[in-house]
Design a protein around this nucleic acid. Structure first.
Lengths: 127, 127
DNA sequence: ATATGTTACTTGCTTTTAGCAAGTGACTAA
DNA sequence: TTAGTCACTTGCTAAAAGCAAGTAACATAT
């Protein structure tokens, strides 16, 4: 638990993971335009820490030398259930979001299938 | 999600919740002696914020006027699945803890039963 | 009744972390 | 060759964390 919080115990790390997993974000710029407005230095720091924790991969885009592609690892994907439980809790007790409701329903119907879909969408990236 | 992180997005809040829910802690002093050594001013602040968020209750102990009893609310209990998924992830990917393994097995066997047990252990408190 | 102890905090202060605005160097497309 | 994109850094300020010490309310023992 405290190990988990060593990596996740801050405002931004889980949001970055949510974006990379569910919003399918790949590039630095994409993370910057999230609704929560993360600063570029913080984003840089969190991506570096997530990489150090083995939860994301950082690789140059073969099609464009100045681009970097970030992807989730299996360890990062392992947090999907936890993230979805947090979404579910937020949906039940906080103000109305409802944009994650379909995701939650999908998870309830077949958790393994949702995770398999996310994983396979990652394999679609040429590296 | 970001709503959830407004409440939980720091190192200590989830640890306090873990203690109050799974370690059955009730008094200020009990939280102070957790393995992670929270400072008393931080603990005070987090308990106040959790109370403001409607996740814990703060009531004077009828048996001892200078004691305060803290208890989880239903809203706080709603985070049990999320916390357990974090524990599970920590158990799988971080260094070996294994002291939460039984808790995780219990949750896997019958999630509702575990939550019911926690809830009923709260009702045992006279207020 | 007085002294001592307990409990749940505050306060003051220092160190660490967050966050914004602006800048940089590597690369690409016109 | 020039302008633009991209993924960051850097400098600076504001906020939060963390420690040590103090305090007010109550309880217990003498």
């Amino acid at each position: 638990m405290s190990c988990a919080l060593d990596v996740l115990g801050d405002k931004w790390t889980l949001l970055v993971l949510r974006d990379i997993i569910f919003m399918r974000k790949r590039y630095f710029r994409e993370f910057l335009v999230s609704s929560e407005k993360i600063a570029s230095n913080i984003l840089s720091d969190r991506l570096r820490k997530l990489k150090a924790a083995g939860m994301v991969l950082r690789q140059p885009d073969p099609d464009n030398g100045c681009r970097i592609i970030y992807t989730v690892t299996e360890k990062g994907l392992g947090l999907v259930p936890a993230i979805l439980e947090l979404l579910r809790w937020g949906a039940r007790y906080a103000v109305e979001n409802s944009k994650h409701d379909e995701l939650i329903r999908q998870f309830d119907r077949d958790p393994q299938k949702l995770i398999a879909e996310i994983r396979s969408s990652l394999n679609g990236i040429r590296l």
